[in-house]
Design a protein around this nucleic acid. Structure first.
Length: 517
DNA sequence: CTTAGGG
DNA sequence: CCCTAAG
């Protein structure tokens, strides 16, 4: 298993503060890997952000029914973030003040490097091996803010029982995400603690976030991680009986079982359910003694039976799923004439699941209605760090071009040339949201290459030689055209008309129309 | 935001 | 597909 995979997966679920550029394009994503490798962001940042988001998001949920307005919430809840250092360790303190409720403080300890425990190969990211900040994290919450606890100390041996008279909770554990299992009690004996029974580990997994999701959207949806909320046939969110504040915690404390179990995602990210012990994740557990534990308040419906993974279809609110689905290579219905090739995402991703989720992907806002406060919670990330814009994004799923698409592309390029990819996109792939003009440009590049190599060297769905020939022809023509433009930028219509009449059979084309006015 | 190219 | 320098 590659750590990189785990990193991507492990933190994909977190929203980060919106950036000006973020809104410009749904596909524009921050190269998380690079930033991480460049130490622009640290695992701590991410974790702290997430933890704070989770905690604050939950806390911010007003008890009153009047919470439709985000302003109301921001007015009610205030939170501050402070980073504190002690003995070289970092701890993050997030204070949330609710006028109507008890103040609370949250602490997120620094992560303890556990690279030795990570059996990964850092082929793609060698730096990770050395710089891995990953290990364990703990989140401590107290309902009594009169005292502050050093997370690290707690991790070093103290348990909740030693926390004093006030309610508190300590959560530590290895990053394990995308896994499922039953509830488990963390063994917070030391930094390097590991869940003894991973198969029973309950996690708030760090799910994925849609690349189209508004960045400012917090993780929680009305206090619930959207990706973790599912609906069953009755339309009600499923809940884990064991998670109710009382019943769920026979021994010491409740176990939060909010699990994002997306097997397909796991597959795609290289994490198999059978091989998740060392995966990265983040665990939180609620404190039964608290009025409103993190995610398990009053028999919270958030809890999902860890041993009963829900099918993708049960995650209608999961924004990222669409792109998670492994594309069904089902061939597109062949389109003989693609004068105006129209393709939808569904065409190239016939998977029913994909289709059902595609809209959600596009309109992800609906998936994460969040209290304004959650946005503030994002400020948990230490200000002085360069991680404010840390965003976790996953590589887009590979979607091989179908012959029909190639046909459309070739036709468009024949007409528009090789330097107007945006127009090509608009002309032939306007309805294929997953194909960007960059994609088309890239595809053309590969097509040209494909056309030049021997058929034996070609891979993937074979492209008709006729198309490849056209590719070469058009490429040669437009290359020449481009060269001529350099020397003689005036009167390109001559060549164009010649080209259209002799090579492409002639007919008005956009270029001609534009050129001639 | 688009292009153009390297990765 | 990703990432980006340039325009």
């Amino acid at each position: 298993m590659v750590l990189q995979k785990r990193l991507d997966y492990g933190f994909n679920g977190y929203r980060v503060p919106a950036t000006p550029r973020a809104t410009r394009s749904a596909r524009k994503r921050v190269p998380f890997r690079k930033r991480f490798e460049d130490n622009q962001i640290s695992a701590f940042d991410l974790l702290a952000t997430v933890a704070g988001n989770l905690l604050l998001g939950k806390e911010s949920t007003p008890t009153s029914s009047n919470k439709s307005s985000g302003e109301d919430q921001s007015a009610v809840v205030k939170n501050t973030v402070k980073e504190e250092r002690r003995d070289g360790d970092q701890s993050l303190k997030v204070e949330t003040s609710n006028q109507d409720r008890t103040d609370r403080k949250f602490f997120v300890s620094e992560l303890v490097p556990q690279t030795n425990d990570l059996n990964y190969s850092s082929k793609e990211s060698p730096s990770l091996q050395n710089d891995a900040h990953f290990g364990f994290a703990s989140v401590i919450t107290t309902s009594d803010c009169s005292e502050r606890y050093d997370a690290q100390k707690l991790m070093n041996g103290k348990t909740e029982n030693e926390m004093g008279s006030f309610p508190c909770k300590v959560e530590t554990g290895p990053f394990v995400c995308g896994t499922s299992g039953d509830c488990i009690k963390p063994e917070s004996q030391n930094k390097g603690l590991m869940y003894e029974e991973l198969d029973r580990t309950d996690k708030i997994s760090i799910g994925e976030v849609a690349d189209t999701c508004p960045l400012e959207d917090p993780v929680l949806l009305d206090g619930k991680p959207p990706a973790l909320v599912s609906s069953d046939d009755s339309g009600k969110a499923r809940s884990c009986g064991d998670c109710s504040p009382r019943s769920s915690f026979p021994a010491k404390q409740d176990d939060v079982n909010v699990v994002r179990d997306d097997n397909k995602t796991l597959l795609q990210t290289g994490i198999s359910r059978d091989n998740q012990m060392d995966a990265l994740g983040f665990s939180l557990e609620p404190n039964p003694s608290q009025t409103s534990p993190l995610l398990c308040r009053g028999g919270s419906p958030l809890t999902l039976p860890c041993d009963s993974p829900l099918p993708l279809a049960r995650y209608p609110t999961t924004p990222r799923l669409a792109n998670q689905v492994i594309c069904d290579p089902s061939p597109l219905p062949h389109m003989a004439n693609l004068g105006n090739f129209v393709e939808s995402d569904h065409d190239s991703a016939p998977s029913p699941t994909d289709m059902s989720l595609e809209k959600s992907t596009t309109d992800s806002k609906a998936l994460v209605a969040v209290p304004a406060m959650s946005v503030e919670a994002l400020a948990v990330v230490p200000a002085h760090r360069k991680s404010k814009r840390s965003e976790v994004v996953q590589r887009r799923i590979r979607r091989p071009f179908s012959v029909a698409e190639v046909e459309a592309l070739v036709q468009a390029v024949e007409k528009l040339g090789t330097g107007r990819w945006r127009d090509v996109k608009l002309r032939a792939f306007d309805n294929a949201k997953h194909r960007t003009y960059v994609d088309l440009k890239d595809k053309w590049k590969t097509l040209v290459h494909t056309a030049r190599i021997s058929p034996q060297q070609r891979r993937g769905e074979p492209v008709p030689q006729e198309l490849l020939d056209r590719v070469l022809t058009a490429h040669a023509y437009w290359s020449q055209q481009q060269a001529k433009q350099q020397l003689k930028p005036q009167q390109p219509e001559t060549c164009l008309l010649l080209y259209n009449s002799t090579i492409r059979g002639g007919s008005t084309c956009d270029v001609v129309e534009k050129t001639l006015g």
